[in-house]
Nucleic acid binder design. Sequence first.
DNA 1: ATTCAGTACCTTGTACGGCAAAGTACTAAA
DNA 2: TTTAGTACTTTGCCGTACAAGGTACTGAAT
Lengths: 112, 112
Amino acid sequence: MENITENIRQQMRKGLIEYCILLTLSKEEAYASTILDKLKNAGMTIVEGTLYPLLIRQKNQGLLTYRWEESTQGPPRKYYAITDKGRQQLDEMENIWKEITNSINILENGKD
Amino acid sequence: MENITENIRQQMRKGLIEYCILLTLSKEEAYASTILDKLKNAGMTIVEGTLYPLLIRQKNQGLLTYRWEESTQGPPRKYYAITDKGRQQLDEMENIWKEITNSINILENGKD
DNA sequence: ATTCAGTACCTTGTACGGCAAAGTACTAAA
DNA sequence: TTTAGTACTTTGCCGTACAAGGTACTGAAT
């Protein structure tokens, strides 16, 4: 906890990561490394130890499915795809996200 | 944890609450009940058990100061005000917030 | 054959934040 | 001297993200 700024960033991101994963998979199916790359490119860098448990959790909740695919360059990959239930929850998350950004806007603009 | 939607909302808000408190106090000093009201009006309802420890933490970090003020209707109130250090951190938080909303936008629009 | 490097997936333990719930204490009115 | 209202505080729990380490598959080099 030496780096205060990084801690703030981490705390603010908490809870958004599942949303980001669903968002990413709503565009197209992907396996872990691809997801990590896409999040990184969007400026939302996370690590393996964060991603894998989340994918498993979301799969167990029925938000995702996966299929194995052989790779020419290493072990087989787990390709995850979003389910209908996952899209429903994504919709809900988008609504919540809008509410939150709206709340922050109100507080920033000092309307009270 | 029965209500999944509420849990999502709660998790997404985590880490933003300190930012909201600093934002609120950057407009004018206030005591706990006023802060709770303002957050509630902005759609960011939190409870006493969340707010008080946060105020104490931010005060201990030098982000806030407080003064006691007598009340005509009950016990004295602790009026909190933001410090220069608090404003610096608020600036940092605003930057991080912009980065995060930008990341979400990128993921929403599927630019990768 | 065996080692090595690269890739991919998984697990354990820890730190931290927010909240529910309960407690303390001050004031004024009944 | 109770009671109701207000205000501040604390304890214990749960969920999340991460650091760190581990397992296992593949192909190339030795």
